[in-house]
Design a protein around this nucleic acid. Sequence first.
DNA 1: GTCTATATCAAGATAGAC
DNA 2: GTCTATCTTGATATAGAC
Lengths: 184, 184
Amino acid sequence: MAVKKTSKEDILQNSIKLFKQNGYYNTSMANIASECGLIKGSIYHHFKSKDEIGLEALKFIHKYFEENIFKIAYKTNLDAKEKIKLFVKKTDEYFLNSEGGCLLGNLALELSNENVLFNDEIRLYFSAWEKALVNILKDKYNESESLELAKEYVALTQGSIMMMQLYSSTDSYLKVGKKLTSLL
Amino acid sequence: MAVKKTSKEDILQNSIKLFKQNGYYNTSMANIASECGLIKGSIYHHFKSKDEIGLEALKFIHKYFEENIFKIAYKTNLDAKEKIKLFVKKTDEYFLNSEGGCLLGNLALELSNENVLFNDEIRLYFSAWEKALVNILKDKYNESESLELAKEYVALTQGSIMMMQLYSSTDSYLKVGKKLTSLL
DNA sequence: GTCTATATCAAGATAGAC
DNA sequence: GTCTATCTTGATATAGAC
């Protein structure tokens, strides 16, 4: 049987899973290694520190959202109603299958404000999310209305994910997407 | 100068401050002790473990909300409009002066689902919050509408606190209270 | 690329002097 | 009630063999 090489992306995916479910500080390098079928020393061949894994994990998820969700807002072959429907569909697909909720949101609350690198990345993610929504909403609303609505829906989504995790119920979360869709 | 005795409440207050700002796992017994002007060993005279401090901290905040905010919903000398205004005012007073946001919300996202004791307490807090809002809203809305609105506003408040922390801006947060008030 | 082994440090927690 | 001192464990991280 061939020895399986562990890629950086394998480690990132496993780290993301653990960070989401157990928190960042409560996940050790040994936990990550174990999830990858390695021992902790081996992880340092791929990443130079735990913080590097954390930051790469945030960027990895941000990139996924950019390429699979946010970009829907800028498609030219869809009208606003179609865009928002697809946007909600893809967002739901992600979060309804994401045990542990939204890593970027989780870390926004877990990390102290002094963690500048992490917080910068988290802000970029949420700003891109808001901007994408604004780009869809401005079809029907003016600039400031769109921005206000976008901010409200990002916040509502995050709060609903929190409640979804806490109560293990998707009920309230699903209403957010419906409400957003009905705006257009 | 008399030696100052440290009370359990002193320790709880300092712990809450640190947990909110730096997270639960990222706050050590030494950090807590230092904030109280003690060394870590001394804390164990008052609490038998860090988890006990954490759980007591959640209960302490829950009690504060019950006695200062949630109970407004059950006052008999106010009408619904007055209740919701006071409810929002007191909620704002707390969160606008709370560096680090909402500890119960923070820990809902930081802790793994296996931490049953903590999660039970957090659920009790949010359920009490929702129930209080329902009791005010049912003046104008039916039972299921009220519950849906209550759940939405608790989630929106938590999401907005997240964004308030992340962007260090109270802007979006303040709109939540206004929106809630305008429901009655 | 993964392992064994280890260095170093900080964590939670306890015992006992004052 | 707080201190000094210590125990034990587990954390991040590194060096070098395979």
